[in-house]
Simulated scan of single mutants.
Amino acid sequence: MYAEPIFLQPVFKDRIWGGTKLRETFGYQIPSETTGECWGISAHTNGPSTILNGPLKGLTLDEAWQKHRGLFAGQEGDDFPLLVKILDAKTDLSVQVHPDDEYAQRVEHEAFGKTECWYIIDCEEESELVYGHHAKSKDEFQAMVDNGQWDKLLRKIKIQPGDFVYVPNGTIHAIGAGTMILETQQSSDVTYRVYDYDRKDDQGNTRDLHIKQSIEVAMIPHEDAHFQPVENKQGDLTVKKLIKESYFTVYHWALNGTAQALENPMYLLVSVLDGEGEIETQNGTSSFKKGDHFIVPSTVKKFSLKGNASFITSHSS
């Protein structure tokens, strides 16, 4: 029986808004000075992670999903459902929106729409996100876009490190400059840009906007999602359930010592935000450190942790 954590090699993405903090903060070997995204746990065709250890070493996560479904609780579906990223926004991301499953499948032939959530790893003082808008109808939304009334249209919220933001499909949103987040999302790469600050790429071209699609999929009027984090202790591990919704359940874990006989809910996605330590399963002990991404497969029913570290963990709901 396969009973050890599955460590993954991230995939990095150059972005017009990216920088170098993925290297400075996590020690990653990034491909450029404008690296915006680390796809830490991904089976998406646009950037699948590669397994680094064990009998499946060298396979992509998608290949493991297709060939070894028993590691993932036998979950059904052609596509691995979740994608975990770390984003470094040196400058503002475009204002954007994502579709639901039905629209993504019908229009984009993508397996999933995109509901996501963000844990704020770091941000500058007085940082803001675009989250929602002030239009009361699609006609009012279109009129504000046509007239370039972005300050009137877009709703902004203040953030600080440690904040958690839930972004259901249909939510108008944008990550602001100087912000680093860990994003847990459905495994989708469909994004519709509403506004991109009229900036140009290195070829002098503006990026495409998708106003028609954005208005079709956007939540109008905007409504905030409501959720209540719940915290408990398991040994020296503080577990905060940040959200449980229809696509994923996401936690923040803070380890300061030892936590034994932790139950694995199905298969657990783990990203190490800080610190280091060891995970022990029935097959032995593996070390982890800041910046590591791994999966505890469903064949590991219980495991123990030792060290001082913080994590974002998640699983399908």
Rank of each mutant, 00 (worst) to 15 (best):
A104H: 03
A177R: 15
E126W: 12
A177W: 14
N256F: 10
N205V: 01
T191M: 05
Q105S: 00
E63M: 03
Q96F: 15
L242C: 03
E63K: 12
S187Q: 04
C123K: 12
V190G: 03
D146W: 00
I51E: 01
D88E: 11
V84M: 11
Y251R: 14
L209Y: 06
P161T: 09
H44T: 01
I121H: 09
T171C: 13
L52Y: 13
V11K: 15
H315E: 00
G27E: 09
E124N: 11
L237W: 01
A3T: 10
S32R: 08
I175H: 10
Y103N: 03
V194F: 04
D196R: 02
L242F: 06
K114L: 12
S304C: 05
V190T: 12
G113V: 15
T45N: 07
N264L: 06
V95K: 09
E216Q: 11
K212V: 00
A3Q: 05
V97I: 14
D163H: 07
A135T: 02
G27I: 13
D151E: 15
S137P: 05
G277P: 03
I120F: 09
E280F: 00
T281N: 04
V250S: 12
S310Y: 05
Q203A: 11
T34E: 14
P5D: 09
L242A: 04
I30H: 10
G204I: 00
R23D: 08
A254S: 15
P221S: 08
H315C: 07
E140V: 07
E276C: 15
D198Q: 08
K241P: 00
D189S: 08
N205L: 08
D78Y: 14
Y131V: 10
